[in-house]
């Protein structure tokens, strides 16, 4: 973030405090402190904290710490187990990109399954970040694709095109959001502050890749299949009425691990890497394979390439 931007944010912060929202919240919290016993106090303070939580980028490091702790308490309450919520920032000199070899993808949907487990998507409303399209040979018209194929794959005379968030360099969803609840991180990943999203779904209308999914009801994740290693901007459990999307497993890749979909793919069709590293596999692919991106005419500049060999 540039100095100018951060200074702007500090000014806004001041203004906010002048406007008394924070002050009001603090006095309510103080009142709650005096009034009640430890447990009730915690609940009241946490509820108020949740209701008046500020935009993620406006939180000071201390406030981030408090917020993460509050969330861990909330998830512990809900899922009866310890959930870790991190807020690791982007690694220096990284810009993540993905390449997918269409000749290798065989439509098993192992990536989809791994993604759902890794990212704590609601099992009830069946949110999935990856759609694998079964397309007859000889066309790239997505309208000829079957999204609901089942049984033994690959089917003769068909190929498989997995689509997920393309992490556009020029993301229409970020432009669309009326409250800046979604933005692009320095490592190129488009993230959502689930506690700032108002659920208007304009980003969903704006996305040309159908990458954004909405929590139509309170998400249901069986406690035993909850992934307890989470990140604020990525796979922590969501609530109803907010958007979510693929973050290239931000909570994993910022620890230098590979995304869950890459790890799950049994054919090695998926290649993930740092676009700023000239020795990375993805750079080799971009330089040596005939790659293409979906809907390039829309000028979204996806960081997700497809190739075939």
């Amino acid at each position: 973030m540039s100095e100018k931007q951060s200074r702007k944010q500090i000014t806004r912060r001041r203004l906010l405090q002048v406007l008394g929202l924070t002050a009001g919240g603090a006095s309510l919290t103080a009142a709650a402190n005096k009034l009640t016993d430890e447990n009730t106090r915690r609940t009241i303070v946490d509820t108020l904290g949740g209701l008046f939580q500020n935009h993620f980028s406006r939180l000071s490091p201390d406030e981030v710490g408090e917020t993460l702790a509050r969330m861990e308490r909330k998830y512990k309450e809900k899922y009866k187990q310890d959930v870790r919520v991190e807020a690791t920032s982007a690694l220096p000199n990284t810009l993540f990109g993905y390449a997918l070899n269409l000749s290798r993808c065989r439509g098993y949907r192992d990536c989809v399954s791994a993604c759902v487990e890794e990212n704590n998507q609601s099992r009830d409303s069946e949110i999935q970040y990856i759609r694998v399209l079964e397309i007859p040979d000889g066309t790239m018209n997505l309208e000829h694709a079957d999204h609901y194929y089942a049984g033994e794959v690959p089917k003769p005379d068909h190929f498989y095109l997995p689509v997920q968030c393309q992490q556009c360099e020029n993301p229409p969803c970020v432009k669309a959001c009326p409250v800046e609840a979604t933005w692009q991180e320095p490592d190129g990943i488009v993230v959502i502050d689930y506690d700032w999203c108002i659920g208007c779904r304009y980003c969903q209308a704006a996305c040309p890749y159908w990458a954004r999914k909405f929590n139509w009801n309170e998400p249901v994740i069986p406690a035993e299949s909850l992934n307890t290693q989470t990140h604020y901007l990525s796979n922590r459990p969501r609530e109803k009425g907010v958007m979510e999307k693929c973050t290239f497993c931000l909570h994993r890749v910022r620890k230098q691990q590979l995304p869950a979909c890459q790890e799950a793919c049994p054919t090695g069709a998926r290649v993930f890497g740092n676009l700023l590293d000239p020795d990375s596999e993805i750079r080799y692919i971009l330089a040596n394979k005939k790659v293409f991106r979906l809907k390039e005419d829309l000028n979204t500049e996806p960081k997700f390439w497809y190739y075939a060999d």
Partner: peptide
Amino acid sequence: VDLGQPLRFWHMIPFVGRLNWPQSMLA
């Protein structure tokens, strides 16, 4: 009524919230 989180309407109030103006056509 179309909002998923109507209680967060205040996020749209400039300065207190964070109105994405002039980027967002909804703003």
